[in-house]
């Protein structure tokens, strides 16, 4: 079972918990989500590889907590230095106070050369000069921010001729237990352990990305015929149920 801080430390005093969390950080970040992304170009998927440079210090995905660096969920739209309880550098705090909000442009500029974008940042990273890799990393990070209207996965479908997704469909609350039953249709091929040799991993996806991907199969925007016939039989509620289950199958 994937350790989350919540269930691991329930019965341990807070002070000891914090020390344990630090010790276990390395273990936990290795469980950062393996997301096979639903972008047709594979940009965000390649970004996951780029992200390997970041994951020693930054957690992302379900259950991510602050480590050496702050967690990167809901990064887009976040005020710089904006996570309560994380010990930021003074320069980050003042950047936030001056109105720096993370978006595609500011993240790109910061990633390219952290020290010159925010002088005095504690992030010990020389910068990502390669624009292509930077775009890929940003595409990956963007999946974990919940402003679904501009989620790149949705963009890549809604821009397709013939594909549209009712925003209400994204908001359906899935019946997780039904999703667990339906998931058995998927686990003949997709491994719950998140292995992705030949068949993509589908665990720990943001729910809306999962829903968008399934609907893209259902209306045949995406081409894999196995997935098309599976998705075709699923109602909006059933897709939401699957998304709810796969978002955190270990829960």
């Amino acid at each position: 079972m994937r350790p989350t801080t919540a269930n691991l430390f329930e019965h341990i005093p807070i002070r000891v918990q914090r020390q344990l969390q630090l010790l276990l950080l390395v273990t936990i970040v290795t469980f950062s989500p393996r997301v096979m992304l639903s972008d047709e170009t594979g940009e965000a998927h390649r970004g996951q590889q780029v992200y390997m440079q970041c994951h020693e210090c930054h957690e992302i995905g379900n259950g991510a907590t602050n480590g050496i660096g702050p967690h990167l969920n809901q990064l887009f739209g976040r005020v710089a230095g904006g996570i309560d309880g994380f010990h930021y550098s003074p320069s980050f705090i003042s950047a936030g106070a001056e109105g720096l909000v993370w978006n595609v442009d500011s993240i790109a500029a910061y990633l390219e050369d952290p020290q010159s974008y925010i002088e005095g940042t504690r992030m010990n990273y020389p910068g990502l000069r390669d624009k292509e890799q930077r775009d890929e990393l940003i595409a990956f990070l963007r999946l974990f921010s919940d402003d679904s209207d501009d989620l790149m996965v949705l963009d890549s479908y809604t821009n397709e001729p013939g594909f549209s997704l009712d925003p209400d469909v994204l908001e359906i609350e899935g019946d997780r237990e039904y999703g667990e039953y339906l998931s058995s249709l998927c686990t003949t091929c997709h491994q719950l352990a998140g292995e992705d040799a030949g068949i993509p991993a589908i665990i720990n996806w943001p729910e809306r990305a999962f829903v968008a991907a399934m609907h893209a199969y259902k209306n045949k925007t995406r081409t894999n015929p196995v997935m098309q016939i599976i998705a075709e039989r699923l109602s909006d509620e059933e897709i939401a149920a699957l998304a709810a289950y796969f978002a955190d199958p270990q829960d």
Partner: peptide, 17 residues
């Protein structure tokens, strides 16, 4: 073909893990 290899690993995990 690569998908079939993924399926094999998947169904084995689904049967025996």
């Amino acid at each position: 073909y690569e998908e079939s290899e993924g399926w094999y690993a998947g169904i084995i995990a689904d049967m025996f893990n």
